[in-house]
Simulated scan of single mutants.
Amino acid sequence: MASSLRINFDKSCLVKIGRNFLMDECWAEIFRCPRSTLPINYLGFLLGGNHKRKDFWNPVINKIEQRLAP
């Protein structure tokens, strides 16, 4: 409230973490935003994927290589 920033619920979604699915439904209804599950993309990166797999890191490596290329 001090910064006067607001959440844009049209661009937001509630991501289920844990087991209490009924609470997720309740929060989604309160905030009037859709629900989603992991994995999701956040700021262009995959959240909730298997970070131990080599191909998980390919998008990150590609972005770094693009930034370093002349």
Rank of each mutant, 00 (worst) to 15 (best):
M1F: 13
M1K: 15
M1G: 14
A2W: 12
S3A: 14
S3R: 06
S3P: 06
S4M: 08
L5I: 01
R6W: 13
R6S: 09
R6A: 07
I7Q: 02
I7V: 14
I7E: 03
F9Q: 02
D10W: 14
D10Y: 12
D10A: 08
D10V: 04
K11W: 01
K11D: 02
K11N: 00
K11P: 01
C13E: 15
C13N: 11
L14N: 08
V15I: 15
V15L: 07
K16R: 08
I17Q: 07
I17E: 00
G18K: 03
G18W: 03
R19M: 00
R19K: 02
N20S: 00
F21N: 11
F21Y: 05
L22D: 03
L22S: 08
M23I: 03
M23F: 10
D24H: 08
D24E: 12
D24L: 10
E25F: 12
E25R: 15
E25N: 15
W27P: 00
W27V: 01
W27G: 00
W27Q: 01
A28E: 07
I30Q: 05
I30M: 06
F31L: 12
F31G: 00
C33T: 14
P34R: 14
P34Y: 12
P34I: 11
P34L: 11
R35V: 12
R35W: 08
R35N: 08
R35P: 05
R35H: 06
S36P: 06
T37W: 12
T37C: 09
L38Q: 04
L38Y: 05
L38M: 05
P39E: 04
P39I: 01
P39R: 01
I40E: 13
I40P: 09
I40W: 07
I40M: 06
N41P: 04
Y42K: 01
L43C: 05
L43I: 03
G44F: 02
G44S: 03
L46A: 09
L47S: 06
L47R: 01
L47Q: 02
G49W: 03
G49R: 02
H51K: 08
H51P: 05
K52L: 09
R53I: 08
K54G: 06
K54W: 12
K54L: 14
K54A: 14
D55H: 15
D55F: 15
D55S: 15
D55N: 15
D55I: 02
F56M: 04
F56R: 03
F56E: 00
F56N: 01
P59S: 05
P59V: 11
P59R: 11
P59E: 06
P59W: 10
P59H: 10
P59N: 05
P59D: 01
V60L: 10
V60C: 11
I61G: 01
I61V: 15
I61C: 07
N62I: 15
N62L: 12
K63E: 09
K63Y: 09
K63D: 04
I64E: 11
E65P: 00
Q66P: 01
Q66W: 05
R67A: 07
R67E: 08
R67L: 12
L68S: 04
L68Y: 04
A69H: 06
P70F: 09
P70Y: 09
P70I: 13
P70W: 10
P70G: 03
